[in-house]
Structure formats: structure tokens, C-alpha cells
């Protein structure tokens, strides 16, 4: 079985994001980059399948040279091959098109990705890859079983669980809960040093959207302190909730 895992490099969740001078992108200064946490679940699932079913795991990331860090990390965790698809595409359709075009015809039985890249939160690249390749998909998956050419996936839906069965090849996007990602072992890290990252010039397919602006949320207005006896404070709070916040 051949598995492809798509990994996205994203700003660390602890980073204090600043908007760049162009007004429509993130200022990369002082940003620490990490693998998108949902992609970590996807990768862990692939490595577990490698261990249980002797699958071959290839990881791919679309981006610039800096994305090699997430690929190297994936190799340390147990991926067999890594590919950097060099591209400046940033629109989800352009990214999905580039990934699908590269993956097409390479015989992947399973394509795993996070259900979304944190930060952008479009949740669209995985499903778009499935559509572009015209294969099955299951998204926001919390449990996955692979049979003989088939899959069975459980996904969280409002108030319950939906169980989907389908035929491979398929795209599965991972949700928190699918597994508990491992730490890279020191031997894995040293082993990754011996593996190479293949670099491929990704085409820049035209996207369907473009970002025109990015703004920080407005600063939170200062709180207000209510004075007086408890009864007066309660009355003031009630009227504020009613008349100003209009919640009843």
C-alpha cells in the first residue's frame, strides 16, 4: 500500500501574528513555523498503517525551502520519502490542483491530510484533491480502518458519529482524536539525516480566489467596573445586559 500525506507548514499557535506591510499577508519576522497539528494526526495514522500493514509513506509539502523542516520532521517520525513541491500558490484551489497534479498516476492508495491547516482554516484542500482526482473522500475523521481495497471511517457530526465506507483510493482528512501523535525518537532524527528530500518545481495553477486584505481583530474595549452595594450592582448588570448587550 502506498500512502501520501500532505503536510502544511503553519505559524506556531503561540506566535503573535502581525499583518505584513502589504496588508494581506502575515509578517514572517519572528514567526516560528510548525507542522499544522491536524496534519500531525494524518501523519501519525500513516505511520501506524506502515507499522501494521507495511505501507510505504510519502510526505509532500507545498511551499518554499522553509517547508523542508516539516518534511525532515516527518522523515524523523517514520515517513519513507519526502517531496517538496516548490510553489508560491496560496489559494486553496491552486494548492489542491498542484498537489493533485503531482500525485496523479503515482499509485497512491490513500491520501491523508489534516482536515484543515490551522490559521487559514479553509478546510478545503483535502476535499478538493479528492474531487480533482475523482476519488472517494471522508473528512474530519476520528477513526479509520483500512480493509482490502476499502476503508471505513468514523467522522464527528453534530450530536453523533457518522460511519462511512468506501473504496480506495481515497482522501481522508484527520480530526483531533484520530490518534495520539508520537514524539520523534533520537534514532529517527539521526535516520532522517540519511534520507533526501526530493524537490519538484510545482506548477502555479491559477486559483479561484485571492486575498485582498487581512486585519487584526479590534482591540477589546476596556471593561467596566460596577460600583455600589451587591443589589445595586446586580441591577446595573441586569440593565446593561438587557439594554446595551440586548441579550434578552
Amino acid at each position: 500500500m502506498k500512502i501520501l500525506v500532505a503536510l502544511k507548514q503553519v505559524p506556531d499557535t503561540e506566535t503573535r501574528i502581525k499583518v505584513a506591510a502589504d496588508g494581506k499577508s502575515i509578517d514572517p519576522a519572528d514567526v516560528k513555523w510548525i507542522t499544522s497539528p491536524y496534519d500531525e494526526y494524518a501523519l501519525e495514522e500513516a505511520i501506524r498503517l506502515k507499522e501494521s500493514k507495511a505501507a510505504e509513506v510519502t510526505v509532500v509539502s507545498l511551499g518554499s525551502d522553509s517547508a523542508k523542516d516539516v518534511l525532515r520532521n516527518a522523515l524523523a517520525l517514520g515517513a519513507d520519502n519526502a517531496v517538496l513541491l516548490k510553489s508560491e500558490a496560496s489559494d486553496p484551489l491552486a494548492i489542491a490542483s498542484a498537489l493533485a497534479a503531482w500525485a496523479k498516476g503515482k499509485g497512491f492508495d490513500l491520501i491523508l491530510a489534516g482536515n484543515k491547516g490551522i490559521g487559514g482554516d479553509n478546510a478545503s484542500v483535502g476535499p478538493m484533491i479528492a474531487e480533482l482526482l475523482d476519488i472517494a473522500q471522508a473528512n474530519v475523521v476520528v477513526k479509520l480502518e483500512i480493509g482490502d481495497g476499502t476503508f471505513r471511517a468514523e467522522r464527528e457530526i453534530e450530536g453523533g458519529t457518522e460511519v462511512i465506507e468506501g473504496k480506495l483510493p481515497a482522501v481522508i482528512t484527520a480530526q483531533k482524536g484520530l490518534n495520539e501523535p508520537r514524539y520523534a525518537s533520537l534514532k529517527g532524527i539521526m535516520g532522517a539525516k540519511k534520507k533526501t528530500i526530493e524537490e519538484v518545481d510545482g506548477a502555479a495553477p491559477s486559483g479561484s480566489t485571492s486575498v485582498v486584505g487581512m486585519v487584526m481583530p479590534p482591540a477589546r474595549p476596556e471593561g467596566r467596573k460596577l460600583d455600589g452595594e451587591p443589589a445595586q450592582q446586580a441591577a446595573a448588570l441586569l440593565s446593561a445586559l438587557k439594554d446595551e448587550a440586548k441579550i434578552f
Binding site: 516560528k32 525532515r72 520532521n73 524523523a76 520523534a184 525518537s185 533520537l186 532524527i189 539521526m190 532522517a192
Partner: peptide, 25 residues
């Protein structure tokens, strides 16, 4: 759980990829 080590003087820039990864793991 602070994610980053204190690095005032570009210490991490002098590490190899493996060294950085060992520290992160």
C-alpha cells in the same frame, strides 16, 4: 508549556538540523 527556549543571541542558528530536532522532541 512555553514553546520556545530563551534565545537572545541567535544561539539556535548555530545548531544543525538534527540538533534542533533533538531539542524540539
Amino acid at each position: 508549556t512555553f514553546t520556545h527556549m530563551t534565545d537572545y543571541m541567535g544561539f539556535q542558528g548555530l545548531l544543525t538540523d538534527e540538533e534542533r530536532m533533538v531539542r524540539e522532541t
